[in-house]
Nucleic acid binder design. Structure first.
Lengths: 113, 113
DNA sequence: CGTAAGCATTCGCATATTCGAATGTATGTG
DNA sequence: CACATACATTCGAATATGCGAATGCTTACG
């Protein structure tokens, strides 16, 4: 695979994950599959919007579906998605903590001015 | 932290990573720090555009800088960023492989139609 | 077949992102 | 100080994304 293609696919997958509502959806699905209406209830996202986001997640292979009668169950395709999600959470929290430290230090040193 | 705030920060960090050029930059920086002009040479991104992307990465704490004379060295702040990057790469490759399998099967079964 | 429930898709608008051209700023050198 | 190098910022236009309203499709049930 060429570099350009690689980075394009990679950033496409990242873009898929880089949306607040889609992350709420993944957060709902992380432990078990759910029907659309269950996700809707759990996240509060309106039906049309939810369906669009599910469509995006589907088309990028992030989730897959199973029909049972009138309901469609969504589930996360690859558990590594959750691992990546959690890693980014860690980075986020560590970054926040560092910033807080820096802010504290700046505030503490202020009085010497 | 509230859910809304959590998902907002999380998706913000993801958005920061979800750009082809920014990923090329991270790909350049993954093993060692680099000056802006080195990154420019390595990636082929024009100076102004590169500087803008570096600014975004900086403001989200993904990279940090060190000045040495006339040069500014950029480096990745948290090695977990690379781990997450690589995880997403794995997901991407596994997803591609699955699709390829599915396509092969579809093609193989075609003759029975 | 008719109707209802569950979900998907289309459309148009508002907003956000991306990019390069032009310009600005900080550091080193003579 | 003048000037060059290295990098940052601003600006405006093109493009992409996110959203809800309206509508379509599929399955279940009588």
């Amino acid at each position: 695979m060429e570099d350009e293609e690689f980075y394009c696919l990679h950033s496409d997958l990242c873009k898929t994950l880089a949306n607040q509502k889609r992350q709420m959806i993944l957060g709902s699905l992380r432990d078990h599959e759910m029907t659309v209406s269950e996700i809707q209830e759990h996240t509060g996202i309106p039906q049309a919007t939810l369906s669009q986001h599910l469509s995006i997640l589907r088309s990028h292979g992030v989730v897959h579906t199973r029909r049972s009668g009138n309901f469609i169950y969504y589930a996360i395709s690859n558990p590594k998605i959750i691992q990546a999600f959690d890693l980014i959470t860690e980075v986020m929290l560590e970054s926040l903590a560092q910033r807080q430290d820096a802010a504290d230090r700046a505030l503490g040193g202020e009085s010497t001015a």
